[in-house]
Design a protein around this nucleic acid. Structure first.
Length: 552
DNA sequence: TGTGGCTGTCATCGG
DNA sequence: GTCCGATGACAGCCA
């Protein structure tokens, strides 16, 4: 049952995408909330800075919905979530271009020639123009199922529903064919030269697709996608026939890449990247693939192993004690890298060590080689010896300098632990240097942690203050309501007393006298009947009477 | 000169 | 056992 429901859910998502292509907005959150319960926006809360919390921490606590990090359902959840996001962004100016690409691919040779002859001024986006009359204009020239769907956007809703139902199977069939989206994309750009994609390029794409398919590309790492713009696209091409007709085409990675790049960018990237890549050695291409598939934040050409680590300032909040601007540290050839290491831009980083640090340190190239046995200089702030620039360095920076450590503090701190251990073991550092490296790393990590901790504390205090204010306002409101209620009750009691007196004054006892309101009262029974009862005076305690008498 | 805020660092604990 | 994050405590700096 669960599997069947999952299948239905996935199909529903894909159906939603197709419906969105023709302008029908479908919200299936309400349905998916049953199977993909945590389909909600992730609220990161007030705390924004300094966080290096891994993403799975968020996945575990989605609004109280406990999800185990290793739960395989998470993949379906995040995939479906991204798909929904893609559906909801269909209104953006990017997606029509993509659809156009698909359509152009489906144009027959004769139609294509005619289309070229017409030199469409809108670069081929005529498909998305609303034709006031069916059967006119360029729409008529593309008799594909998808085109009919596009045409159907002008139909009435009931016609639309029937048409969509009837065409979905045809669409699936059309897509299940090996639709080369890359060809379509290039063609869609309207450049004649781009339409001619060589078989060599296609082979290259498939090669990269194969290798990149094993790469776990983080959705948040968009920059590096430019290094492999077509990998996943061709992955789509190669896998469409393998997957289900609709499921394969809806590869979340494909949508993500397409949206991030856009067709204009694709055209540019195609010219810029594919030309040089054609002449590259396949091994180089594999290296590029493995690098770009992981190193998505690095553009400095550093080692892929370093940049592949997710330990480098994974936060998207921007504020980290040790800047994400720091370039990766190589695992091989440290000396060469240290000589070529470019200083990070601290202007965008949080460098709270205002007491000691200064960007001037990073303006000085680190070209020194590691030396052994160099004693650490006395680095106390009270030293008379340090030069002017040294006084602006942090103590750890000074220590690292003194110990001839060819890494910056930022590098040491942000280095993944595997890389750090490799550096410690494989580069002949003295025990003193190793100790200093460990201390620098520990202090740097702890500095970040302290900043996070203090920010959380401030956020907690702020939240508690807001809670106090809220509760105080609630208390004041309740007090006002209480006073108002008491006042109302008093007025009602007075009215009841007055009414009782009026009633008793109209009643007569056995002797024909009016009832004394001080001796009689009215009681309303449970059945709604009003009964006249004598007033029950509290019995006087005999002991109290005696006490009063004794006092007198 | 005292004070409060900010920051770095250490020690410790728990995952 | 090690690593790492969180946090209390302390000290130094600065306005």
């Amino acid at each position: 049952m669960q599997i069947a429901k999952k299948y239905v859910s996935e199909s529903l998502i894909q159906l939603t995408i197709f419906l969105s292509l023709i302008g029908v907005r479908v919200d299936i959150d309400s349905y998916l909330s049953g199977y993909y319960t945590p389909l909600i926006e992730i609220n990161l809360g007030p705390s924004t800075a300094y966080t290096q919390t891994p993403f799975h921490n968020l996945r575990d606590t989605l609004d109280g919905y406990s999800v185990h990090p290793k739960c395989p359902e998470l993949d379906y959840f995040f995939a479906s979530r991204r798909l929904l996001d893609e559906v909801r962004t269909l209104g953006s100016p990017r997606f029509p271009i993509q659809l156009n690409a698909w359509l152009v691919h489906q144009v027959s040779a004769t139609d294509k020639a005619r289309d070229d002859a017409e030199h469409l001024p809108d670069g081929g986006q005529h498909v998305w123009q609303t034709t006031p009359e069916l059967g006119q204009g360029p729409m008529e020239e593309v008799p594909t199922p998808i085109t009919q769907l596009v045409q159907s956007s002008t139909l009435e809703q009931e016609d639309l529903d029937s048409l969509v139902t009837g065409q979905l199977s045809d669409i699936a069939t059309a897509i299940s064919r090996d639709v080369n989206l890359h060809d379509a994309m290039i063609t869609s750009a309207g450049r004649g030269e781009s339409r001619q994609v060589t078989q060599q390029q296609r082979a290259l794409f498939r090669l990269e697709s194969t290798s990149s398919s094993h790469t776990d590309v983080s959705p948040g790492m968009a920059v590096g996608l430019a290094a492999l713009p077509f990998a996943s696209v061709c992955n789509l091409t190669g896998n469409v026939s393998q997957h289900s007709a609709m499921g394969g085409c809806l590869d979340e990675a494909v949508f993500e890449h397409i949206n991030q790049l856009g067709l204009e960018a694709m055209d540019t990237v195609d010219n810029q990247l594919m030309g040089p890549l054609e002449s590259r050695d396949p091994q180089v291409l594999e290296d590029l693939d493995s690098d770009s598939g992981l190193s998505l934040e690095t553009s400095s050409g550093g080692s892929s192993e370093i940049s592949s680590s997710s330990s480098y300032c994974e936060d998207e909040c921007g504020a980290t004690g040790y800047s994400s601007e720091v370039d990766s540290v190589p695992s091989k050839g440290i000396v060469e890298y240290a000589a070529a290491w470019s200083p990070p831009d601290l202007s965008e980083s949080v460098w709270h060590d205002h007491s000691y640090s200064s960007p001037t340190f990073f303006d000085q190239p680190l070209v020194t080689l590691p030396h052994k046995g160099i004693k650490e200089e006395p680095l106390s702030d009270e030293d008379d010896g340090p030069r002017l620039d040294d006084r602006e360095l942090s103590r750890d920076e000074l220590r690292a300098r003194a110990m001839c450590i060819p890494f910056s503090v930022l590098q040491i701190v942000n280095m993944p632990v595997e890389e750090f251990l490799e550096v410690l073991d494989g580069h002949g550092f003295s025990p003193e240097q190793v100790t200093l490296l460990r201390d620098i790393r520990r202090r740097g990590k702890n500095k970040l942690a302290a900043q996070n901790c203090r920010k959380r504390k401030l956020d907690a205090i702020t939240g508690l203050q807001e809670e106090v204010e809220r509760l105080r306002a609630q208390r004041d409101r309740l007090v006002r309501e209480k006073h108002l209620t008491a006042k109302t009750m008093g007025a009602v009691g007075q009215q009841i007393k007055q009414l009782t007196r009026d009633i008793l004054a109209r009643l007569r006892d056995d002797s024909g006298h009016p009832l004394n309101p001080e001796r009689f009262t009215l009681q309303c029974g449970a059945n709604g009947r009003v009964v006249v009862q004598p007033v029950r005076r509290p019995a006087v305690n005999k002991t109290d009477k005696r006490k009063k008498e004794k006092k007198q």
